[in-house]
Amino acid sequence: MQRFATLFAGLLLNSWSATAQSTDTPTPRPWYVPDHATLQTGGGIGMLTAGAGYTPGRHPHRFDADVLVGYVPARYTGHRAFAIFTAKATYSPFSVRLAERWRLLPLSVGGLVNYTPAAQINRNSADKYGYRGYYWWTPTLRAGAFLGSRIALALPRTTGGKREASLYYELGTNDLYLVSYLPNRQGLSLGQLLTLAVGVKVDL
């Protein structure tokens, strides 16, 4: 866990220093350069998950679209490490100013889809069971939804604008947990479905 924390901090600092250099250029960025970088743990999409995304609306209310790649070490998969590829959308409709440079986005709602191309995941090949739909779900593609909050700190840019670094958490679930819960609302509680994600985003 300590090694992981060091790695996490190291990557964060690394992205920080890299972005600090790039912001010195006063010219407007080309459209394809992402608006922010993201680093996350948990949420069913990796132990260490890094990505980048766009914020079309910019501040103060924001809609984020991110693409992330997650890593799950072999220790947690029983055999080989997983890579998880995720597309994620988050909308934070409210913004509360806490202090001069701090604001809180008390509610974030979002959804994601992810793909785990791991060979050790036993595929539900169509011909495995003679009757169609015996295993009706896809084993490597998952969909998820979440709610969360986010706290953001505005940082001055040398070019005069501002950018934010923020810390967020998300409580979510996935399609398979949800279909387990829906017909079993006495036998399972919502709390048993939850996954937690914690992450940071830094505007580029």
């Binding site: 799950v72 409580l171 996954t195």
Partner: peptide, 14 residues
Amino acid sequence: ASCDLLEFSPNDTH
């Protein structure tokens, strides 16, 4: 409790 919720993948064996 948070560590328990911190799921890396629904396929993880944690």
